[in-house]
Amino acid sequence: MDAIAEYLPLIRQGFITTVQVTVLGAALALVVAFALGLARLSTHRWVRWPAACTVEFLRGTSLVVQLFWLFFALPFFGVQLTAIFAGVLALGLNEGAYASEVVRGSIASRPKGQTEAAIALNMTPAQRMRRILLPQSIPAMLPPMGNVMVDLLKNSSLVSLVTVADLTFNAGLIRSATGETALIYGIILLLYFVLSLVISVIIALLERRFSPTRERRSLLTALTGRTQGVS
């Protein structure tokens, strides 16, 4: 343990880098998820079909190959990405493709009667999506979206393959210097577990915040107060 103590700053820096990659990758994944998920629900083929092809391509190819292509192959076309940018881009696109199916499936599973009622109220497609479908779909999206985010965290270790100094990369440096394989990898195993717990807690809080039961209770309170005001 004494041999590891002097390398704690390296572990801390790797931890910070892993958090940065995870947060940035998650933000990009959410943007990609909603963009592709909503595009696949479009009534226009010229929007729906390219989105479907993009999702299938990103899901059907290896994340490692995508990462290597962005970092090692793009320079042959005159595009040079930094290691951390290539890592975030690969994670965001790949996990976003999986998350887009969560978005699409959650919205498509809404009762058709709600859409028909919105059409009867002369709502535009954008208004139906913004005011009715999306708010009701968010609670259904959260549990599978949490799984995607945990998966993104675990896959963030792959950015070490393109020299990003994250937890996994720095753990390899420390192991080479000290020979403490079991100890150092036990430490980062625990750190990854703690980060996954943080994601799970955040998702649980969001589930409670967007719980349909809570929304119905708030609506009932509002209606009751309005009724009492009238009486």
Rank of each mutant, 00 (worst) to 15 (best):
E6S: 10
L8A: 01
L10V: 10
T22D: 09
V23M: 09
V23S: 06
V23I: 14
V23A: 13
L24S: 06
L28Q: 03
A29I: 03
A29V: 07
V32D: 07
R40A: 14
A51P: 02
V55E: 11
F57D: 12
G60V: 11
V64N: 04
F76T: 15
V79S: 08
V79I: 15
L81I: 14
L81C: 13
L81T: 07
I84Q: 08
V88L: 14
A90M: 09
L93R: 07
L93W: 12
N94T: 14
A99V: 02
A99C: 05
A99G: 03
S106M: 06
A108N: 13
S109P: 02
P111W: 02
K112F: 08
G113Y: 02
T115A: 12
T115M: 06
A120S: 11
L121D: 00
N122S: 15
A126F: 12
A126S: 07
I132G: 01
Q136P: 00
I138P: 04
A140N: 12
A140T: 11
A140W: 00
P143I: 13
N147Q: 10
N147A: 13
V148S: 10
M149H: 10
M149Y: 09
L152A: 10
K154F: 11
N155F: 08
V162Y: 00
V162K: 00
D166R: 00
D166K: 00
L173T: 11
R175E: 15
T181Y: 11
L183H: 03
G186L: 10
G186E: 14
L190W: 06
F193D: 10
F193P: 00
S196K: 00
S200T: 01
V201C: 05
I202T: 10
L205R: 13
R208Q: 10
R209K: 12
R209T: 09
S211M: 05
R214S: 07
R217W: 12
R226T: 12
R226K: 03
R226C: 04
S231K: 02
